[in-house]
């Protein structure tokens, strides 16, 4: 239902983002999905990776500010209207979405949406009741 998302503080300067990604690649960590929230001075890089614990360890060793958040990983058919349906359910239940990002898996006709909400359990309960399914962390990490 939830997966571990790693967030990394990245100063808004040339070469900073690549340093983080090179740290991961040097440790053979594979990215599953990512998104960046940016402000004028800094960005927050959010990552889903195949080996979250190891990623956190190597990032902290490299003195990056990191935090780990449990986020919902919704599994959808890759067809028009699937995501809209999910968001409608949440909106009707008065659950706000902090942010989301999506990715598709190779050859599975599936799309995955990473959802960050205030209360994972509440959102999951509402969605499950309406027949929405979730990817479990193992699916995502080993994808």
């Amino acid at each position: 239902m939830t997966v571990e998302q790693i967030s990394v503080f990245v100063e808004n300067r040339q070469g900073k983002l690549v340093e983080v990604l090179e740290t991961l690649s040097a440790n053979n960590i594979d990215l599953r999905a990512l998104c960046i929230a940016d402000t004028a001075d800094f960005g927050i890089l959010r990552l889903i990776v195949n080996k979250p614990e190891e990623a956190v360890r190597v990032l902290q060793q490299a003195e990056c500010a990191t935090s780990v958040t449990q986020v919902l990983a919704v599994s959808l058919d890759d067809t028009p209207g699937s995501l809209a349906r999910v968001l409608r359910i949440l909106a009707d239940a008065a659950i706000s979405v902090e942010y989301l990002y999506a990715f598709v898996a190779h050859g599975k006709d599936k799309a995955y949406v990473i959802l960050r909400v205030e209360d994972n359990e509440k959102a999951a309960a509402v969605l499950t009741k309406k027949g929405i399914s979730f990817a479990d962390s193992k699916d995502i990490y080993t994808m």
């Binding site: 967030s7 503080f9 929230a37 800094f42 927050i44 959010r46 500010a65 935090s67 958040t69 960050r116």
Partner: peptide, 15 residues
């Protein structure tokens, strides 16, 4: 310097 404990995944908290 940002204190590592202050860092979270959302922009609004840091702002």
């Amino acid at each position: 310097e940002l204190n590592p404990e202050m860092f979270t995944d959302t922009v609004k908290q840091i702002e």
